[in-house]
């Protein structure tokens, strides 16, 4: 598996650390209520198809990246810098 870092270019997967679902970029507001926070902290989808994860290019530039990939075909469709995601 190869991931194209927006800064460094195409790199081997071993340079990246898997962080988890990109839900971390969609943190609810403090008063969003228990259901929203329960969902944010505990509940994850397990999709067969397109998914969005956070990875860190830890053995490279150190950037956190959002990877759009497909769990069925293993295709990596898009990679963007987490720093550029508007929250």
């Amino acid at each position: 598996m190869r991931i194209t870092c927006p800064l460094c270019g195409e790199r081997d997967r071993r340079e990246f650390y898997y962080v988890g679902d990109a839900v971390a970029l969609r943190r609810p507001s403090p008063d969003a209520g228990e259901a929203a926070w329960d969902d944010y902290i505990h509940n994850r989808d397990n999709p067969a198809g397109d998914t969005q994860d956070l990875w860190q290019h830890e053995a490279g530039c150190g950037a956190w990246v959002v990877v759009d990939r497909n769990t069925v075909t293993h295709a990596v469709n898009n990679v963007t810098l987490a720093a550029k995601v508007t929250r």
């Binding site: 460094c8 071993r14 340079e15 830890e58 053995a59 490279g60 530039c61 150190g62």
Partner: peptide, 10 residues
């Protein structure tokens, strides 16, 4: 220049 691995080293 490149930030990468040499063996297992950053």
């Amino acid at each position: 220049t490149a930030r990468t691995l040499l063996g297992h080293m950053h």
